[in-house]
Structure formats: structure tokens, C-alpha cells
Design a binder for these strands. Structure first.
Lengths: 239, 239
DNA sequence: GCGGTTAGTTGAACGTGTTCAAATTCGGTT
DNA sequence: AACCGAATTTGAACACGTTCAACTAACCGC
């Protein structure tokens, strides 16, 4: 009941500055040496603060990953929103958003392997799938709401309501692929995006057809159930 | 080139015994207290060996997870093979295998959260998706080969060839769901299995239809590409 | 300016995963 | 029975993530 959801320990501009300094330093070192190779001590030293101070702003090393997520998302939105002004079909809008996401994450490719380390652990507070209330996840889904909103395509209400979430899951899948993708310039990922966006677009058209109503209802019910199961895990609080 | 793939350090019956002792102790403690809460020191102490000795048999704590995978798989096969003698349709065979898998893993539900912790990290030698040569994965796919082999259903060659792998991926998805499933007696997972096995069966029938050949080719090509991308990651060796 | 409350900062200490050189045991050979 | 090399076992040492009690700085009402 009385579980607090506050994350930021920042209360003053001074703290904001220190927090940013530590995060920037950490991300820079993650980029250069990877996550495991970067120690909290090294981050603190390079940032010119004490070890304990780093823990004042980031509850654990893993929380730096969440901050990284947040940063990536902010950058992504900053690029995507203006770009979305121009596109109008669902297909082009989705394509734009997906490509920009890869663009934004590019510098962190070798570090990104850890992103999914906690994704499967229901206990982890960083699991983006298991925590309905996770603000990064919320914000991320919101972007896909914008992708859907802006289209004139006729999409049934039930599907339209679920679509942002579905697209978000799809986008997580693409990121998972990208993490493993070693092809030069991530060509494979871009090709996969091209192909799958096409497929997604077709499936939405198909699924919007009145004839598909029963199947669609069935499939959406299944999706709901999957989501419920994942979200039910917020019972246990600490640890 | 000269990368060695040996995992077992066991050369004598004595070693086998100690290895088993350590593994059994570890799994028992994982069951009771979970993975994080169980320290290597505690395992060693309870098993009556030294800390270093545990590391002689298991390169790291994570490798105990792989051994756990292996154990689960062995148990699963031991139950599944006899059961498969009786079933003959693809649907019933798959249903049997899936239910037994959950049955076997049941005692480890709360520990199982860590199973997917490394699943997303391309670097990890434990990632079952990224290591084509992983013997546990091989053996696991083999079981699904048996599921497919035993059916008389007409399945096109190209699909039949890929099907065991596809079913294995499907089964990993179910496990991921099960990990998050907090419903009493895992009812939700069993229901999901019932539903999805039905769907899988229908999709195989559908996909086997000659009319679907172009779409099937297309989809299988995509699957191949996904697999390639995951497997390409075995370039880097140590660390 | 002063006292007090909160924000921010420090570094020592602890627990845990991991490594390693040295010691011990084992199985076979002479 | 003595010996040798390999397999096994040991425990101390190290590095790193994390915690925490104590300290300092900043701010606010008076």
C-alpha cells in the first residue's frame, strides 16, 4: 500500500548537475569498455566524486541501465516527433520511428547486450515487460500511440486500443535482434525492419477487415492475458 | 579456430560424484532460497567441499544454471519419450510434451526467474538462442524433432525441416510466460498451452496447404535470417 | 548572523563471485 | 611398495557491488 514510487533523489539544481555528471560519465565508459568492464569505482573516480556519492543517485549499477533507457528514449522522441509531422500513413510513420530508434542507439551497440539481461527476470524492477507502472515503458508506448493516432487508416476500436502496446512489443523484438546483429552498419536490422514493417502493416489491414472480427477478438484476448500475467508480478515489493 | 569446447572437467568416477554432489546441493538451495540468495560459499559448505572445489567443477555460478537446464531436459526426455509412444497426432504429441515440461520444472518455479537473465545477452555462453553449438539446445530441439517425426500429417519438406526449431522457440516462449505466471497451480500456463497448441496445429495445417507455398517460403526465409543473426555471434571467444 | 533541517558527500567496511598457487589424493607402472 | 603424473582439493587473496554512519554544505525562518 504505502509503497513509494520515487526514483529520483534529486531535489536541487546542484544534485541534478552531479547526477547528470555521473550518468554521462557512466554512459561514456559503457560505450568504450562495455558494462561489465566498467566498475562503479572507475565511474566515480572519472566523474570526480566518491563511490558512495554515485550510489546516492543510482540505487545500483543496474539502475544506470534504466537511466540509459530513459536517455535513449528522450533522444528518440526528440528526433521522431518532428519526423512524424511529415509522414502520414501508418507504414511510413512506423518505418520512420523504427529506423530512428536504431539510429539513436547505434553508439551503444556493444554495450546494449546487457539491456535484456533483466528483461526476463520477473523480480527485477528494471524488467520493462513486468512493470506496468514503469515510466520508461509508459513513455515508450506513448510514442507508438502517436504513431497510430496520426493515421487515417480505419482500424477497429479494440485493435486500435491495443495497437500501441503491440507495436511497442514489436519494437522490443527488433531491438533484441539488433543487439545480436553483427552485420556491417546493421544492414540486417534495417532490412528486417523494412520487411517486418511491411508485414505489420498488412496484418493490421487484414485484421481490420470485418470478416476477421472473431479471429481478432480471439487474438486480442490472448494478448490481454499475456499482459495480465506479466503485470501480476508487482505483488512482491522490496528486494 | 583452436577454440576448445570442453565443458566437463570430470575425468574420473570420483570427480563425477563430487560434481553431482555440488550440483544437487546447489539445486536444492536454489529451490529453497532462490538463486541470488544462495552463495557459492553456502553451497560449498553444505556440500562439504571447499569453495575452490565448487569452481573446479563449475566455471562460474551461472554455469550451475546451464547444468540445471541439462538436468531439467534429461528429466523431461525421460518422461516424454514413453508418453510419445501412445500419442500419434502432432497436436496431442505437442500437448503432451509441453505439459510435461511444465510438470518437470514445477519445483523450481521461483528460482526459474534467472533462467532468462542471460538469454538476451549475446556475449553470454549460456544464451540458448545465440549458440548454435550449445548441446542443451541441440538436445532440446531433438526432442521436438521426435514430436514432428512421429506424425503422419503431410507437412512440406521445407516446413518440416524448420519445424523442430520453431517448436523449440515456441516452447521457450511458454517457459517465459510460465516464469511470470503466478496463478494457482500454473493454471494460466496450462490454459495458454492448450490454446496455443491448438493454434500452432492449425497454423501448420494452414501453412502446409499448397496455396500457402509463397507465403510459407517467405516466412521461412525470415526465420532463417533471424537464426543466422543470432548464431553469427560466436566469433568472439573468451570472456 | 544563528540554529536547525534537509540535501549532498565521503570513505571505510562487508559480503560475494572469482582466481590461483600450493597441497593432497588417486590410479596406474615398474 | 615406491613412484609419477594427472586429477582433485584447499584456502587465502582479490576485485567489485553495495551499505552505512558520520561529515559537510546549502538553504530557510527568525
Amino acid at each position: 500500500m504505502a509503497a513509494m514510487r520515487k526514483k529520483k533523489a534529486v531535489k536541487t539544481p546542484k544534485g541534478d548537475q552531479t547526477r547528470k555528471l555521473i550518468l554521462d560519465t557512466a554512459l561514456e565508459m559503457f560505450r568504450e569498455r562495455g558494462y561489465e568492464q566498467t566498475t562503479m569505482r572507475a565511474i566515480a573516480e572519472k566523474a570526480g566524486v566518491s563511490l558512495g556519492n554515485a550510489y546516492y543517485y543510482f540505487r545500483s549499477k543496474e539502475f544506470l541501465i534504466q537511466a540509459f533507457y530513459q536517455t535513449m528514449h528522450d533522444d528518440h522522441v526528440a528526433l521522431a516527433l518532428p519526423a512524424l509531422e511529415k509522414d502520414d500513413t501508418l507504414k511510413t510513420r512506423l518505418l520512420t520511428v523504427m529506423r530512428l530508434k536504431i539510429e539513436v542507439m547505434k553508439p551503444y551497440h556493444q554495450f546494449a547486450g546487457v539491456l535484456f539481461k533483466t528483461a526476463g527476470d520477473p523480480q527485477s524492477p528494471l524488467n520493462p515487460f513486468a512493470d506496468e507502472a514503469n515510466p520508461v515503458r509508459q513513455a515508450s508506448i506513448q510514442l507508438f500511440e502517436k504513431v497510430v493516432e496520426g493515421t487515417k487508416a480505419r482500424i477497429p476500436k479494440d485493435l486500435r486500443a491495443e495497437l500501441p502496446y503491440l507495436l511497442w512489443v514489436y519494437h522490443m523484438g527488433i531491438i533484441l535482434f539488433w543487439i545480436h546483429d553483427r552485420s556491417p552498419k546493421h544492414r540486417r536490422t534495417y532490412r528486417l525492419i523494412d520487411r517486418t514493417v511491411e508485414m505489420v502493416d498488412k496484418m493490421i489491414s487484414l485484421g481490420s477487415n470485418p470478416f476477421m472480427r472473431p479471429l481478432r477478438k480471439h487474438a486480442l484476448a490472448l494478448v490481454d492475458e499475456l499482459r495480465d500475467a506479466a503485470d501480476d508480478v508487482l505483488d512482491s515489493d522490496d528486494n
